[in-house]
């Protein structure tokens, strides 16, 4: 009878030894191994995204001339409207800067918006995130806020060479400082409600016990600017109901997030401009 090696006689022992070796392995080697796998996965994700873009392109090519003309006329109307809004915003920004200089207030940080296409959405039972087609090459940084027309999308969790991973607002790991629109008290927001076929939700903690939701409208929940990642005033969602906490003297509220959160095709990454003008003591 052939003699069996240790590998054949004691597979569990071999696995235990392999696990111990893995635990003792320096972190840098594990990080390198993990990063290499992610960079290997990136082309397949991008390829799938490009194929979807080509499909969209050919779907648009089949649209009739009248449909295109109608779309064009709608777009020109919207362009004129946004040009007027842009002029108005420029005037208001100048006014804000004047007031800041007059009262020697710290200026708001300025951001560059890097538009990125969504390559892959990954909303599993355990985490919610998406991969975008911009990475280190495009100046994306870890922790940068990501927004879309409906408000906050999430924040950059990881940056790779040509792709980045965005942790979505609905992910249980994402916590940020928020407030109810019209109120100044900072509260704690945490994502996490992802029932099937339902709009994603989050939880708002530390709401004062005397606060009640107005009957006419569900109030907006917005960012406070505290914590240094998300600037102030970005929309998170709407406060839909309140529940008294059994352990503390506060209430907890459910925040309904934008239902488009899991259908977004393009997002904007906010990159803080480090060379933005800062007020000096002389001013």
């Amino acid at each position: 009878m052939p003699r069996k090696s240790l590998f054949q006689r004691r597979p569990l022992l071999v696995l235990g030894i392999a696990f111990l070796v893995w635990l003792l392995l320096p972190g840098i080697i594990k990080t390198f191994f993990r990063s290499s796998i992610i960079e290997l996965q990136a082309p397949s994700r991008q390829a799938a995204s490009v194929v979807r873009d080509v499909q969209d392109y050919w779907a648009l090519r089949t649209a009739g001339r009248n449909t295109l003309l109608r779309e064009l006329s709608d777009l020109s109307r919207q362009n004129s409207y946004y040009q007027l809004r842009s002029q108005r915003i420029s005037l208001l920004e100048e006014e804000i800067k004047r007031w800041e200089q007059l009262y020697n207030l710290p200026s708001h940080p300025e951001y560059h918006f890097e538009i990125a296409r969504v390559v892959q959405r990954d909303s599993t039972t355990w985490w919610q995130e998406m991969t975008i087609r911009k990475g280190r090459q495009h100046g994306i940084r870890e922790g940068a806020p990501v927004v879309f027309a409906g408000g906050v999308v999430g924040r950059i969790r990881e940056v790779h060479l040509a792709t980045s991973t965005v942790e979505l607002l609905s992910s249980p790991g994402l916590r940020l400082s928020a407030r109810i629109s019209g109120k100044s008290r900072p509260l704690g927001f945490q994502g996490g409600g992802n029932r099937p076929f339902h709009t994603p939700t989050g939880k708002l903690d530390f709401i004062p016990i005397n606060y009640q939701i107005p009957e006419e409208t569900e109030p907006l929940v917005i960012t406070t600017g505290l914590g240094g990642i998300f600037p102030e005033g970005l929309v998170i969602g709407r406060l839909t109901n309140l529940k008294e906490s059994e352990e503390t003297l506060f209430q907890a509220g459910q925040v309904r997030l934008d239902q488009r959160l899991n259908q977004i095709r393009e997002v904007a990454v906010m990159i803080a401009l480090e060379d933005s003008p800062q007020p000096t003591d002389e001013e």
Binding site: A48, Q120, D122, S123, N194, R195, P196, H198, N262
Partner: peptide, 13 residues
């Protein structure tokens, strides 16, 4: 992964 991408709007995976 591709199937999960298209299931995301329904909050399924």
């Amino acid at each position: 992964r591709e199937i999960n991408h298209f299931l995301t709007p329904y909050h399924l995976s």
